[in-house]
Design a protein around this nucleic acid. Structure first.
Length: 423
RNA sequence: GGAGAGGUGGCAGAGUGGUCGAAUGCGCCGGUUUCGAAAACCGGUGUGCCUUUACGGGUACCGGGGGUUCGAAUCCCUCCCUCUCCGCCA
């Protein structure tokens, strides 16, 4: 959620920011609504003050009783009716404003390149050479089933299209990656959490999934709970409604969770094999930091994600997303894309963003400043990393002519020393 | 899932219709005292919003929501959470 006071003081910068995102908003209407809300609030509170005075005066009269008391009560009641009417107007106006605010995206940082869609994203860094093969490299959907480490048909049998199974060494390899990722994060100072995979709608609103993206979430039938689309949601909301100790910042959290996404509207596009599935594992990094250092911390966190790909020896690049491609709650985002030799393309395995105070304002996450006053924190999050696409890149990159796959040395300790996956 | 007991400020804990944003203690901050510290004493110490150049004023918040009343921490309804016991169970 944006800062209404900031909108009041420089409406033009917001007008431009939303325009740059391709999500123009009627700023004048917003400001008019805001003015209306404040007028009604002043009137309602003024009446309430009068009513409180009148009620207070009744106390001493109450014992005596009689006509004076009845008269005073009647006057207070009339005042109360008037107050209730104005307050109802205020409430309606406030709700109307809040409903609009919840759908307004976070303005991007000034450095974010202007652009309409993914084609306008800027390549910020590249790492690794394109792998050479003296044979035609296969895509993972051919390689993995042949090795007996993935079974797509049986995933579909269990839960429908978009669900997969990992088998044998495939399942173990995924678990090895999770463990290695987490261990790397712990070494970088992160605290690991295990969190609920189901959360309340209020929590989803805190990080920005609701109300705008309700159609992307899985919901439970008999309970008002939703499956998390990313560990960002529970991790960021851990401190919802809290005032943190300044000395504790920055807080660096990580967690491994499955992620559940309906992917409504994404059917058919790049969905083969493991590329886009409704349920996948991911290790997520979340930071709580200050306005002063959040941008620099984003670089650090992004570095942590990149280090994982380097450790695995996987060719990758970093994109700075343009204004039109940056997600709703984010102010600046770097995507990490890994090279998939089997499909001759890039796959997004991480998205590292600063949310400035946008999520903190929604979720009520503050820190006590040096002046003793609470102020909003800045939140960051980034994947570190998403598992399925790492698996894809890994087996495609390290495939051999005979169809076997060599395991990167860093993972071998997690696989009982296994060096190669053979059929 | 059933029965019971509870949810009050950073913590502990009073308060059962009015003068209660809330006693008291602890903690914390400042001051006096001291060579310094401790102790003692004095003062201060929640959050959001509206309004104001400022000082200030107003309003809301005693788990959440709703209701009764001129007036609710206090009464009623409802939901959530915690604890104890029972049941069930990884």
């Amino acid at each position: 959620m944006i800062d209404l006071a900031a909108l009041r003081s420089h409406p033009d910068s917001f007008r431009k920011a939303w325009g740059d995102r391709g999500a123009p908003a009627d700023v004048d209407a917003l400001l008019a609504q805001d003015t209306l809300v404040r007028e009604l609030k002043t009137r309602a509170e003024g009446l309430k003050a009068e009513l409180n005075q009148a009620s207070k005066a009744i106390g001493p009269l109450a014992k005596a009783g009689g006509a004076a008391l009845d008269e005073a009560k009647a006057r207070a009641r009339a005042l109360g009716d008037q107050q209730k009417a104005v307050d109802a107007e205020r409430e309606a106006a406030e709700k109307a404003l809040a409903d609009q605010l919840l759908y307004l995206p976070n303005p991007c940082l000034a450095e974010v390149p202007l652009g309409k869609d993914a084609a306008d994203n800027r390549v910020a860094a590249e790492w690794g050479e394109e792998p050479r093969f003296d044979f035609a490299p296969k895509p993972h959907w051919d390689l993995a089933p042949a090795l007996g480490i993935m079974d797509f048909e049986r995933g579909a049998k269990l839960a429908g299209s978009g669900f997969v199974t990992l088998r044998g060494v495939g399942a173990r390899l995924s678990r090895a990656l999770v463990s290695w990722f987490l261990d790397q994060h712990l070494a970088s100072g992160y605290t690991e959490w295990a969190v609920p995979y189901l959360v309340t709608p209020q929590i989803m609103q805190g990080t920005g999934q609701l109300p705008k993206f309700a159609d992307q979430l899985y919901a439970c039938k008999d309970d008002p709970l939703l499956l998390v689309p990313t560990a960002e949601v529970p991790l960021t909301n851990l401190h919802a409604g809290e005032i943190l100790d300044a000395a504790s910042l920055p807080l660096q959290y990580c967690a491994h969770t499955p992620c559940f996404r309906r992917e409504a509207g994404a059917a058919g596009v790049g969905t083969r094999g493991l590329t886009r599935v409704h349920q996948f594992d991911k290790v997520e990094m979340v930071w709580f930091t200050t306005a002063e250092r959040s941008r620099a911390d984003l670089e650090t966190m992004r570095g942590h994600a990149e280090a994982l790909l380097r450790g695995l020896g996987l060719r990758h690049r970093v994109l700075q997303l343009c204004t039109g491609d940056t997600g709703f709650s984010a102010a600046c985002t770097f995507d990490l894309e890994v090279w998939s030799p089997g499909t001759n393309g890039w796959l997004e395995v991480s998205s590292c963003s600063t949310f400035t105070d946008f999520q903190a304002r929604r979720a009520g996450i503050r820190v006590r400043g040096t002046d003793g006053k609470p102020q909003l924190v800045h939140t960051l999050n980034g994947s570190g990393l998403a598992l399925p696409r790492c698996l894809i890149a890994l087996i495609e990159t390290y495939q051999q002519a005979d169809g076997s796959v060599v395991i990167p040395p860093v993972l071998r300790p997690y696989l009982g020393g296994l060096e190669r996956i053979v059929r």
